[in-house]
Amino acid sequence: MRYAALATVAVAVATCVAAPARAQDVAAPSRPSATATTTTASDSALEAQTTAVASTLRCPVCQGESIQDSPSDLARQMRIVVRDKLRAGNTPDQVKAYFVSKYGEWILLDPTMTGLNILLYVIPVLLVVGGLALVAILVRRWTAPETTTQ
């Protein structure tokens, strides 16, 4: 079976991907006491939500980086604001709206799907859909019998 060798390689590759992920699952609840953070287990959902929101906010003092990625002081402080607001019960959209009210729409790395911005989302879809239709038409035409060639 010639796929056997490939399958073995694939499984070996997979174990390597899977290993760290599983290790993390185990490590998360039973963190060594000497670690610096004092987060509780329930915070992991909050952390995930903070990361998700912070990834969509642009760091004002960097260029193009999100506040999640930027190592700058302001980005770190803004992450804390995001976390605090989420913890206080704000929805992700409310947190984003807060930053928009302070910094303008500029701060959103993911433009809102409203008004002119819709073009930004519609054009790529139209390109692919229109392109697929075009390719279908061309292939039909180019494979048609000689007489119908125009």
């Binding site: 303008g104 790395l109 993911d110 008004g115 002119l116 390109l127």
Partner: peptide
């Protein structure tokens, strides 16, 4: 074309809407 449109869009938005927008990683 998607990447080109996304890269140029901040200019378009400013020209048409007069508003600064960002187009970044999530988009």
């Amino acid at each position: 074309l998607t990447v080109l449109v996304g890269t140029l869009y901040p200019l378009v938005a400013e020209a048409v809407r007069g508003v600064k927008v960002s187009v970044g990683v999530p988009f």
